[in-house]
């Protein structure tokens, strides 16, 4: 593995709605910006429906990174499922949101169940 990090994934067209995803500094697992603070359950992630909220959330993410709480926060374009949950549109972000495809028993999918 050559470099350590690849910035946010490219999605064609509209970047909204969106959530903010990052890695927890201490634990290293994926966290999502919630109404207040961060959550590990993507179903509880705060969703930006307009650019203004997206910008504000991105700024909040960056502030948390500067305060040494999270690493590499970025905006993730999502679609909203039938049950109203955000689901990342890019397959790479989906992998982070759910966990490894080869191990359904690990990662967020194991902790919080499927996203419907």
């Amino acid at each position: 593995m050559a470099k350590d990090h690849r910035a946010g994934s490219k999605v064609k067209g509209d970047k909204l709605p969106a959530i903010v995803m990052a890695s927890d500094l201490l634990e290293g697992d994926t966290v999502f910006l919630a109404e207040t603070g961060w959550t590990r359950d993507s179903k509880a992630a705060r969703i930006a429906h307009d650019q203004e909220s997206a910008d504000a959330m991105e700024a909040e993410g960056k502030a948390a990174a500067a305060a040494n709480a999270v690493v590499d926060p970025y905006l993730v374009p999502v679609e909203i499922t039938e049950e109203g949950h955000p689901l990342a549109r890019h397959f790479r972000d989906v992998m982070r949101q759910k966990g490894p495809s080869i191990h359904p028993d690990m990662g967020k999918q194991a902790d919080f169940g499927p996203i419907a």
Binding site: M1, A2, D4, R6, F91, M95, P100, S101, I102, H103
Partner: peptide, 20 residues
């Protein structure tokens, strides 16, 4: 097979499932 997208932050595609 390298870890690929199942783990790796740099991956552009899955690798392990292809091997499987």
């Amino acid at each position: 097979a390298c870890p690929g997208l199942d783990y790796c932050a740099l991956a552009t595609a899955k690798s392990i499932p292809i091997a499987q």
